[in-house]
Design a protein around this nucleic acid. Sequence first.
DNA 1: GAAAGTGCCGAAAAGGCTTTCTGCGAACCG
DNA 2: CGGTTCGCAGAAAGCCTTTTCGGCACTTTC
Lengths: 341, 341
Amino acid sequence: MNNAVPSSASRKVTLNDVARLAGVSVATASKALNGRKQVRAETRARVVEAAEQLSFSPNELARSLLADRTGTVGLLTNDLEGRFSIPILMGAEDAFGADSVAVFLCDARGDAIREKHHVQALLSRRVDGLIVVGSRTDPRPSLGRELPVPVVYAYAPSEDPEDLSIVVDNVGAGRSAVDHLVSTGRTRIAHITGDPTYGASQERAEGALAALADHGLSLVGEVRFGSWTESWGRAAASMLLGQHPELDAILCGSDQVARGVMDALREHGRTVPDDVAVMGFDNWEIFTSGARPALTSVDMNFERLGRVAAQRLFAAIDGEPRSGVEALDTRVVIRGSTVPG
Amino acid sequence: MNNAVPSSASRKVTLNDVARLAGVSVATASKALNGRKQVRAETRARVVEAAEQLSFSPNELARSLLADRTGTVGLLTNDLEGRFSIPILMGAEDAFGADSVAVFLCDARGDAIREKHHVQALLSRRVDGLIVVGSRTDPRPSLGRELPVPVVYAYAPSEDPEDLSIVVDNVGAGRSAVDHLVSTGRTRIAHITGDPTYGASQERAEGALAALADHGLSLVGEVRFGSWTESWGRAAASMLLGQHPELDAILCGSDQVARGVMDALREHGRTVPDDVAVMGFDNWEIFTSGARPALTSVDMNFERLGRVAAQRLFAAIDGEPRSGVEALDTRVVIRGSTVPG
DNA sequence: GAAAGTGCCGAAAAGGCTTTCTGCGAACCG
DNA sequence: CGGTTCGCAGAAAGCCTTTTCGGCACTTTC
């Protein structure tokens, strides 16, 4: 009554073993387990049972070698610690997991040499495709057109327009932020953002200015560039309040900046949101929910970005390549810092 | 003068092609490229050149099939988005990368079924070993002893003492936090921490109390358990200040809690660090550096944890398994919230 | 000058699986 | 009842590489 083969999981159960136990040839065993036609139901059952008894699991290496398709993809990131890679990676893993594809993770740490090396390693392991995740929205060098597998660039687009890149629509994000503020009745809006060398800060500002113009408004003061930190948010807000005490909303380039801004507002005796509305970008939950009141923010939908990238990669692997830059839209998550209550 | 074989990277350059171009047999080509003896220098050169010309890269699948060793490991995490997995993962990737090992990443999202499935998938891809990263310090179920490859548990130990687990010494972390506070002259120390169901909060508190006893001190009030949030930090600190205005230091269970505590202190007119010292755990840079003043915190050395886990896995793969729980020590990172700047 | 040794190269097997193709008995058709 | 299908199983080739072993042409040794 007890399991006769307890050591089954020990090592190396091969199709041969299954076939022998079932009393058939390896060819038949293979066909039986893979649902091929050409095998009698009774025989199939015997093989399946033998496989279970031995807890057989086919060697994917051998299978891949033959099929010239491994069911693996490479995920090449450049800032594993970063805010962006992880959700994207999760989305991708999510999309892949459904189809039982495994992902090889590599972090090039921003080093081109390392990156080359990793690509080489991945190719020698015969991945079916590659997703390259950047750490900034600025375009990055292409891996080249001569690669034997499809590549999708996520977050940071490739410089080569022939490549396919999936990015976030930062201009649109800026627009929708302003739209939201205006819809809550704000008209004297200022903008404090981060590092001016980042494409993200420029594009968000561009979108915000465009939306203001559409509404017949203009920004209070200039766009304040600085760094992506709380302390910059505090400093900039203090300055701004001195120069433009009439403002009724501050759009911040990131949630961290927004946290600093809210700190400064409180110290200047301004209340949020009644007196001044505040909102950020990124919807980084640990910052938005810790704020008082909770921070309205533009969610960049990174997980979806990862999923879309994975889907596009699948399509390309299946012979339907695309190229160009595909920008995904964002969504405003409304919380207490822009609407009372 | 130009490269004669531009399409080299296209598809499927095999050792056969190299051998043919070099005018030797595949056996000789293999030996030549792998630095085996038994091949004349001149012949070797010819092969190497042929390989370069075709930009040949050996099929690792075939190689692994033969060697019964893939040079890949599986990294099974349970909260990819979490604070812990990523640095551990980076440390592991770091340690592996040096020896050109590739890592398969899987996120089971805390689901046991999913986990089983991923383990199965990884085994069928013939990983050489597994690292299992937990999301909490509490012990987790073992994957079992019957696996055909070594397993190392990181952060969350396995329930089975026969397994090898690498964890953080949270008790020691609690001790060293108190030691630091005492060394700066604090004697009336309170402790606000997070979710009481987490082993981490219990162990850190335990270490803190032990260290206080060693110094002949006792805690101001009781340990305040709550949640790992800023708002809990604020609320608990306010209560605490009402009941024990004499306190001169608050040890916080996490950096987030500490941020909330500092907020509350400021609102109650207490200055940090002169009046009250504050410190946290985790040394999460985005929180510690944004605080005013910057927050002293206990760094859990997660990257090192990842590296050690990877090293232990290597050792086990090479036939030197260990078992039991290995606790790594932590370090206090001193900033302005405990010592005047 | 024959026997033994050396240096290099290639044939072949192995690793685990899938697939094609062949073969064989049974069922069908006329 | 002879011949054709049909259903099912097995033999064998192939995927790409490494490694063992045998063989060939030399050189060395008495």
